[in-house]
């Protein structure tokens, strides 16, 4: 198991996943670092027959994220500062004019509004590009269950797009 190569290949996806789950850039950075530190310590225990290296590192990252969330008192931190309605951002006003940007914003809002488990699925599927079997491995559920949940999330995102457009 080449953890260094795995880090180069997965660090960005892992960060995206961690940030989607914990919703805090500093915490997400910590999760990624801890995940790879644990991977270095446990690299001899990796068994390729039990799953791909990506599924393995994402499983470690998930546990690290859960540990971080527990340590921070189960209170998630927002990824960005709340919007001050009294002073609208001029950039937002410009962007609102753009249909595509408005759709993306709607999707981003929809993702942010999803429950933690569904957000996690979005990160694993859309950001990290894991297969359903790998997602099932990471989450400790069956592939069928993973597929069902993914379909549910997809439906919600579709609805969000329709609302956004």
């Amino acid at each position: 198991m080449d953890v260094e190569a795995l880090y180069r290949a997965c660090a960005d996806d892992l960060y995206a996943y961690a940030r989607t789950v914990v919703r805090d850039p500093i915490l997400a950075e910590e999760v990624v670092a801890v995940a790879f530190e644990r991977a270095v310590a446990r690299q001899r225990r990796f068994d390729a027959r039990r799953g791909s290296p990506r599924a393995w590192i994402f499983g470690i990252a998930r546990n690290a994220a859960i540990d971080e969330l527990r340590r921070t008192g189960r209170t998630a931190v927002l990824t960005h500062d709340p919007v001050d309605e009294r002073h609208p951002d001029p950039a937002d006003q410009l962007a609102a004019a753009d249909e595509a940007v408005r759709r993306r914003a709607a999707v981003a809002d929809a993702i942010a509004a999803l429950p933690g488990r569904d957000r996690e699925l979005v990160a694993l599927k859309f950001h990290a590009g894991l297969s359903n079997a790998e997602i099932a491995k990471v989450l400790g559920i069956s592939a069928t269950n993973a597929g069902s949940r993914l379909h549910r999330v997809l439906t919600r995102l579709r609805e969000a797009c329709h609302v956004g457009s």
Partner: peptide
């Protein structure tokens, strides 16, 4: 939809990237 979700993907800041690289290198 895939493109929209991909656009919402959080990006690792360069400064954070450097800090991570250091920690992983130490590990």
């Amino acid at each position: 939809l895939v493109a929209d979700v991909a656009a919402a993907k959080p990006v690792l800041e360069p400064a954070a990237r450097v800090r991570l690289d250091e920690r992983i290198d130490h590990a």
